[in-house]
């Protein structure tokens, strides 16, 4: 091996060392505890790497949320004002102008649950499409498990949602709904939806990394999804007259499931739900495991390709 060193190091004027075969070099590298640069880590090592980066994920997500409003004069108050304005606009259109509120009581909390819960998934999906392209500089400069990016995208949106939830609880209380123990269910619901969302962010993250055009198309997909998710009206408006298969598909819509669970927890009113609570819980768990785990594996499979042209 000492011959290699002399060849490789000090040969002014000569292009390289053709004397060593690739096999010999590979053996030499292995003998010195070296590995091929840029290889994809195993799934287990990947998860461990992510865990080691947890401080970064959290700080990165928080920093982005803080930076978002840093130039606005009212600053962080916008985190609370934005969802309230959002709900206000939908109330004006669907509650006052189109009167889709018929048969729904109390309508304002019902609407706000729909808007805020849907918004969480929508924003995560849209930001997920841009998670890789927006951070190409970071990817090309630093080594870290790339899943950090979609995860921090989801956490930014979760933090935004927590502000919305404060607003939502005030709205629910103001409209005369009583606080019950069922409110504690908000925590498991948000955990399930977060797992689902992080899976979505990873799926969209991988697609958006290769095909940047998706971020142009996704707003339309998400808007369609919103109208199918019973955000401003009962989904039974559709399911009552649809063929059984379509009705089942509409009821299995994951976002609808999370919205209905949130309504169940905060407002009660079982008879307004799209499916019985037990079935909603089962579907919520299945969706979050399926999309969460599946999305993670799907994202990891292209790990070494992110940031390459």
């Amino acid at each position: 091996m000492s011959g290699l060193r002399a060849d490789a190091t000090f040969t002014p004027g000569l292009p390289a060392q053709p004397s060593d075969t690739s096999a010999a070099l590979a053996a030499y590298a292995a003998a010195n505890g070296m590995h091929v640069s840029g290889e994809r880590p195993s799934l287990l090592r990947y998860v461990r790497g992510l865990w080691e980066r947890r401080d970064f994920i959290l700080t990165f997500a928080t920093a982005r949320l803080a930076a978002q409003y840093s130039t606005a004069r009212l600053g962080q108050i916008w985190q609370l004002l934005t969802p309230i304005f959002n709900a206000g606009v939908y109330y004006l259109i669907f509650g006052v102008l189109l009167e889709t509120n018929r048969g729904i009581h109390p309508f304002i909390p019902y609407l706000c649950c729909g808007v805020f819960v849907f918004n969480f998934t929508q924003q995560t999906v849209l930001a997920g499409c841009r998670a890789v392209p927006d951070n190409v500089g970071l990817i090309r400069a630093l080594h870290f498990p790339r899943a950090t990016l979609p995860i921090s995208v989801m956490i930014t949106q979760l933090q935004q949602l927590l502000f919305s939830m404060v607003a939502l609880m005030v709205i629910v209380l103001a409209s005369g709904v009583r606080v019950t123990f069922a409110w504690l269910l908000v925590v498991p619901i948000l955990v399930l939806q977060s797992v689902f969302n992080v899976g979505m962010a990873m799926i969209m993250g991988r697609i958006g990394a290769k095909t940047t055009d998706v971020s142009q198309v996704m707003p339309f997909v998400m808007r369609t999804w919103m109208y199918a998710s019973g955000v401003f009206y009962k989904v039974s408006t559709f399911t009552a007259h649809a063929p059984p298969l379509v009705a089942t598909a509409l009821k299995a819509n994951p976002i609808l499931v999370y919205i209905e669970l949130m309504r169940f927890a905060l407002i009660g009113q079982r008879e307004q739900l799209a499916s019985p609570p037990a079935r909603l819980w089962v579907m919520a768990v299945i969706w979050s495991l399926l999309v969460g785990v599946g999305g993670f594996v799907y994202f990891w499979q292209a790990e070494e390709e992110y940031g390459r042209a």
Binding site: H35, V36, F60, G137
Partner: peptide
């Protein structure tokens, strides 16, 4: 092929800064 020991890093933290 390129073999490395440990993780080579570029001096390029600027991308992470806001």
């Amino acid at each position: 092929a390129i073999y490395t020991r440990g993780q080579p890093s570029l001096l390029g933290v600027n991308a992470a800064l806001m």
